[in-house]
Measured scan of single mutants.
Amino acid sequence: KKKIKIYIENENGEKKTIEIEVEGDIDEIAKELAKKYNVKIVKIEP
């Protein structure tokens, strides 16, 4: 498992940072999160 930080922006332009532990393809997981929460991924840090 890797701990990563995902910087997101919602439709109101509010920026947030999510810190999660992931296993597998980080890009795939980030895309799923973006779709699920309707946010834009700004940056992903390993």
Score class of each variant (00 low, 15 high):
Lys1Asn: 06
Lys1Glu: 04
Lys1Met: 12
Lys1Pro: 11
Lys1Arg: 12
Lys2Glu: 07
Lys2Asn: 10
Lys2Met: 11
Lys2Cys: 06
Lys2Arg: 13
Lys2Phe: 15
Lys2Asp: 06
Lys2Ala: 10
Lys2Leu: 14
Lys2Ser: 08
Lys3Ile: 12
Lys3Glu: 02
Lys3His: 12
Lys3Gln: 08
Lys3Phe: 14
Lys3Asp: 01
Lys3Pro: 10
Ile4Ala: 07
Ile4Leu: 08
Ile4Gln: 02
Ile4Val: 12
Ile4Phe: 15
Ile4Lys: 01
Ile4Met: 10
Ile4Cys: 06
Ile4Glu: 00
Ile4Arg: 01
Ile4Gly: 02
Lys5Phe: 11
Lys5Ala: 04
Lys5Trp: 13
Lys5Ile: 11
Lys5Pro: 00
Lys5Glu: 02
Ile6Leu: 09
Ile6Gly: 00
Ile6Val: 10
Ile6Glu: 00
Ile6Met: 06
Ile6Pro: 00
Ile6Phe: 15
Ile6Tyr: 04
Tyr7Glu: 05
Tyr7Met: 09
Tyr7Gln: 06
Tyr7Thr: 15
Tyr7Val: 12
Tyr7Leu: 09
Tyr7Ile: 10
Tyr7His: 09
Tyr7Asp: 03
Tyr7Pro: 00
Tyr7Arg: 04
Ile8Thr: 09
Ile8Met: 14
Ile8Asn: 00
Ile8Asp: 00
Ile8Ser: 02
Ile8Phe: 15
Ile8Glu: 00
Ile8Lys: 00
Ile8Ala: 06
Ile8Cys: 14
Ile8Arg: 00
Glu9Ala: 05
Glu9Asp: 03
Glu9Asn: 02
Glu9Gln: 07
Glu9Met: 09
Glu9Phe: 06
Glu9Lys: 05
Glu9Ile: 14
Glu9Leu: 09
Glu9His: 05
Asn10His: 14
Asn10Gln: 11
Asn10Leu: 15
Asn10Val: 07
Asn10Pro: 01
Asn10Tyr: 15
Asn10Glu: 10
Asn10Arg: 11
Asn10Ala: 13
Asn10Phe: 15
Asn10Gly: 13
Glu11Ser: 13
Glu11Thr: 12
Glu11Gly: 10
Glu11Cys: 13
Glu11Ala: 13
Glu11Val: 11
Glu11Pro: 09
Glu11Leu: 10
Glu11Asn: 10
Glu11Asp: 09
Glu11Gln: 14
Glu11Met: 12
Asn12Tyr: 14
Asn12Glu: 09
Asn12Ala: 13
Asn12His: 13
Asn12Trp: 14
Asn12Ser: 12
Asn12Asp: 11
Asn12Gln: 11
Asn12Gly: 08
Asn12Cys: 12
Gly13Gln: 03
Gly13Leu: 02
Gly13Asn: 04
Gly13Thr: 01
Gly13Cys: 07
Gly13Ile: 00
Glu14Cys: 15
Glu14Arg: 05
Glu14Ser: 07
Glu14Gln: 12
Glu14His: 07
Glu14Val: 12
Glu14Pro: 02
Glu14Thr: 09
Glu14Asn: 07
Glu14Ile: 08
Glu14Lys: 06
Glu14Tyr: 09
Lys15Arg: 12
Lys15Gln: 15
Lys15Leu: 15
Lys15Gly: 08
Lys15Ala: 10
Lys15Val: 15
Lys15Ile: 15
Lys15Tyr: 14
Lys15Ser: 12
Lys15Met: 15
Lys16Thr: 14
Lys16Arg: 14
Lys16Asn: 12
Lys16Leu: 15
Lys16Ile: 13
Lys16Pro: 01
Lys16Phe: 15
Lys16Asp: 13
Lys16Glu: 12
Lys16Tyr: 15
Lys16His: 15
Lys16Cys: 15
Thr17Pro: 01
Thr17Asp: 03
Thr17Ala: 05
Thr17Glu: 07
Thr17Cys: 12
Thr17Tyr: 12
Thr17Asn: 04
Thr17Arg: 04
Thr17Gln: 05
Thr17Leu: 07
Ile18Val: 06
Ile18His: 02
Ile18Gly: 00
Ile18Asn: 00
Ile18Ser: 00
Ile18Arg: 00
Ile18Thr: 00
Ile18Asp: 01
Ile18Lys: 01
Ile18Pro: 00
Ile18Leu: 12
Ile18Glu: 01
Ile18Ala: 01
Glu19Lys: 02
Glu19Asp: 08
Glu19Pro: 00
Glu19Ser: 08
Glu19Thr: 11
Glu19Asn: 04
Glu19Phe: 10
Glu19Gly: 01
Ile20Ser: 01
Ile20Cys: 07
Ile20Lys: 01
Ile20Asn: 00
Ile20Pro: 00
Ile20Thr: 03
Ile20Trp: 07
Ile20Leu: 14
Ile20Met: 14
Ile20Arg: 01
Ile20Asp: 01
Ile20Val: 11
Glu21Arg: 03
Glu21Pro: 01
Glu21Gln: 06
Glu21Gly: 02
Glu21Thr: 07
Glu21Ala: 08
Glu21Trp: 15
Glu21Phe: 13
Glu21Cys: 14
Glu21Leu: 09
Glu21Ser: 07
Glu21Asn: 07
Val22Met: 10
Val22Gly: 06
Val22Pro: 03
Val22Asn: 05
Val22Leu: 10
Val22Tyr: 13
Val22Thr: 11
Val22Lys: 01
Val22Ile: 12
Glu23Gly: 07
Glu23Val: 13
Glu23Arg: 07
Glu23His: 10
Glu23Phe: 11
Glu23Met: 10
Glu23Cys: 09
Glu23Trp: 14
Glu23Asp: 13
Glu23Pro: 03
Glu23Ser: 12
Gly24Val: 03
Gly24Ser: 05
Gly24Asn: 04
Gly24Thr: 04
Gly24Glu: 03
Gly24His: 02
Gly24Lys: 03
Asp25Lys: 04
Asp25Thr: 07
Asp25Met: 03
Asp25Pro: 07
Asp25Cys: 05
Asp25Ile: 04
Asp25Leu: 05
Asp25Tyr: 02
Asp25Phe: 04
Ile26Ala: 06
Ile26Ser: 05
Ile26Arg: 02
Ile26Asn: 03
Ile26Val: 12
Ile26Pro: 07
Ile26Cys: 04
Ile26Leu: 09
Asp27Phe: 13
Asp27Ser: 09
Asp27Ile: 10
Asp27Asn: 11
Asp27Gln: 12
Asp27Met: 13
Asp27Thr: 11
Asp27Pro: 06
Asp27Gly: 10
Glu28Gly: 06
Glu28Ile: 09
Glu28Ala: 12
Glu28Phe: 08
Glu28Val: 11
Glu28Tyr: 10
Glu28Thr: 11
Glu28Cys: 08
Glu28Ser: 08
Glu28Leu: 14
Ile29Arg: 04
Ile29Glu: 04
Ile29Ser: 05
Ile29Trp: 13
Ile29Gly: 01
Ile29Cys: 09
Ile29His: 06
Ile29Asp: 01
Ala30His: 05
Ala30Gly: 04
Ala30Ile: 15
Ala30Arg: 05
Ala30Gln: 04
Ala30Glu: 04
Ala30Tyr: 07
Ala30Val: 15
Ala30Lys: 05
Ala30Pro: 01
Ala30Asp: 01
Lys31Ser: 11
Lys31Leu: 11
Lys31Arg: 14
Lys31Tyr: 09
Lys31Glu: 09
Lys31Pro: 01
Lys31Gly: 07
Lys31Ala: 14
Lys31Met: 09
Glu32Thr: 08
Glu32Asp: 10
Glu32Asn: 10
Glu32Arg: 13
Glu32Trp: 14
Glu32Val: 09
Leu33Ala: 01
Leu33Gln: 00
Leu33Thr: 02
Leu33Ile: 15
Leu33His: 01
Leu33Met: 06
Leu33Glu: 01
Leu33Tyr: 15
Leu33Val: 05
Leu33Phe: 14
Leu33Pro: 00
Leu33Ser: 00
Ala34Glu: 12
Ala34Asn: 02
Ala34Gly: 05
Ala34Arg: 06
Ala34Leu: 04
Ala34Phe: 04
Ala34Gln: 08
Ala34Asp: 02
Ala34Lys: 07
Ala34Trp: 05
Lys35Trp: 08
Lys35Ser: 10
Lys35Glu: 13
Lys35Leu: 14
Lys35Tyr: 08
Lys35Phe: 08
Lys35Asn: 06
Lys35His: 07
Lys35Val: 07
Lys36Ile: 10
Lys36Val: 07
Lys36Asn: 06
Lys36Asp: 03
Lys36Ala: 06
Lys36Gln: 08
Lys36Leu: 10
Lys36His: 07
Lys36Gly: 01
Lys36Tyr: 08
Tyr37Leu: 14
Tyr37Ile: 01
Tyr37Glu: 04
Tyr37Asp: 02
Tyr37Ser: 03
Tyr37Pro: 02
Tyr37Arg: 02
Tyr37Asn: 03
Tyr37Ala: 03
Tyr37Val: 02
Tyr37Lys: 02
Tyr37Phe: 10
Asn38Leu: 04
Asn38Phe: 04
Asn38Lys: 08
Asn38Asp: 04
Asn38Pro: 02
Asn38Met: 04
Asn38Tyr: 04
Asn38Ile: 01
Asn38Gln: 06
Val39Cys: 09
Val39Pro: 00
Val39Glu: 03
Val39Phe: 15
Val39Met: 11
Val39Ser: 13
Val39Leu: 08
Val39Gln: 03
Val39Thr: 04
Val39Ala: 14
Val39His: 05
Lys40Ile: 14
Lys40Met: 10
Lys40Ala: 05
Lys40Glu: 06
Lys40His: 11
Ile41Phe: 05
Ile41Leu: 05
Ile41Val: 08
Ile41Thr: 02
Ile41Lys: 01
Ile41Ala: 04
Ile41Gln: 02
Ile41Pro: 01
Ile41Glu: 02
Ile41Asp: 02
Val42Pro: 00
Val42Gln: 04
Val42Asn: 04
Val42Met: 09
Val42Tyr: 05
Val42Thr: 06
Val42Ala: 03
Val42Glu: 07
Val42Trp: 07
Val42Ile: 15
Val42Leu: 15
Val42Cys: 07
Lys43Trp: 14
Lys43Phe: 10
Lys43Thr: 06
Lys43Arg: 12
Lys43Gln: 08
Lys43Glu: 06
Ile44Arg: 01
Ile44Met: 05
Ile44Ser: 01
Ile44Gly: 01
Ile44Val: 08
Ile44Tyr: 06
Ile44Asn: 01
Ile44Ala: 01
Glu45His: 06
Glu45Phe: 08
Glu45Trp: 09
Glu45Asp: 03
Glu45Gly: 03
Glu45Ala: 04
Glu45Cys: 14
Glu45Tyr: 06
Glu45Ile: 09
Pro46Thr: 14
Pro46Asn: 13
Pro46Lys: 06
Pro46Leu: 15
Pro46Arg: 05
Pro46Glu: 15
Pro46Ile: 15
Pro46Trp: 15
